[in-house]
Simulated scan of single mutants.
Amino acid sequence: MLVYAVIAVAGVQLAFYTAIARIPVSTALLIEYLAPVALVLFAWVRTRRVPQLVVLAGSVVAIAGLVLVVGPAGGALDPFGVVIAGVAMLGVAVYYLLGERDDLGVPPIALAASGLLIGAVVLGIAALSGLVPFEAAFTDVDFLGGTAPWWVPVLMVAAISTAFAYVAGIQAIRMLGTRLSSFLGLSEVVFAAVVAWALLGEAIGPAQLIGGLLILGGIVLVRLERRASDTAAIALDVDLVPVPVRAGAADERPNLAQ
């Protein structure tokens, strides 16, 4: 729980917001969402098995789509900002790896609640210590075309965008595995573009449409990965093909009764 809270929750937030203070947001997002590729490489190193071709193809297609959707800014980049964005990417990878560990005996709600609570404490310490700039204004804010008290959007972000999202994410990881769920997580940028179009009126360009299709295509390719259990089942089916008994073979078998 401590590793999940400090690295996968607080660490990702601190690293990402530190990175976007030095490099463009789109570039930081692109680096952070390389987590699925990092997981593929991690599995490659750990098992010493080359990933299946369909997984490698899905990785290339999905990342190409991500580049089109996010549209990373060009120009010179702050090396420290790039490194910190890479730290955020590793934190996301840890989020998927620990989320899959149902053998820990911690239900998704308990893991999310404990992780977010401890993560909030870590972020609070970082703010109070001056590690990150922090300020708050408790005033009415513009919200969904109107005006609302400050606590209304805070409550919605806390309940829907954070608590519900983390619990649903952990449950999905345990059902689908780290690889497929991490690639499905790339669809977040596609839905973000759709929501921005619907609520903020931000146009979706042709490049973003193509990028979204590529991301979905990459997810499909990764989904087509053949598991070891599937391969064993196919081998078993082949081994169980009936072998015809030639004529007279029954007479040649020894009589066990004798």
Rank of each mutant, 00 (worst) to 15 (best):
A5P: 11
I7L: 10
V9E: 09
Q13H: 11
Q13T: 10
Q13W: 10
L14N: 01
T18Q: 12
I23R: 13
I23V: 14
L29W: 03
L34Q: 05
F42N: 13
A62Q: 05
G65H: 02
F80C: 09
V82R: 05
V83R: 14
V94A: 12
V94Q: 08
Y96P: 03
L98W: 01
E100R: 09
D103K: 04
G105M: 08
L116S: 03
L116H: 14
A120G: 15
V121L: 11
V122P: 14
L123V: 07
L128W: 07
G130T: 02
L131D: 04
E135I: 01
A137S: 10
T139C: 00
D142P: 09
A148C: 03
A158E: 01
A165L: 11
A165C: 15
A168P: 07
M175D: 12
F183Q: 07
F183W: 06
G185P: 03
S187E: 04
E188C: 04
F191R: 10
A192K: 06
A193R: 05
W197N: 15
W197R: 13
L199N: 10
Q208K: 15
Q208G: 13
L209P: 13
I210G: 13
G218F: 03
V222T: 12
A235N: 11
V241P: 11
G248S: 06
G248Q: 05
E252I: 07
L256A: 09
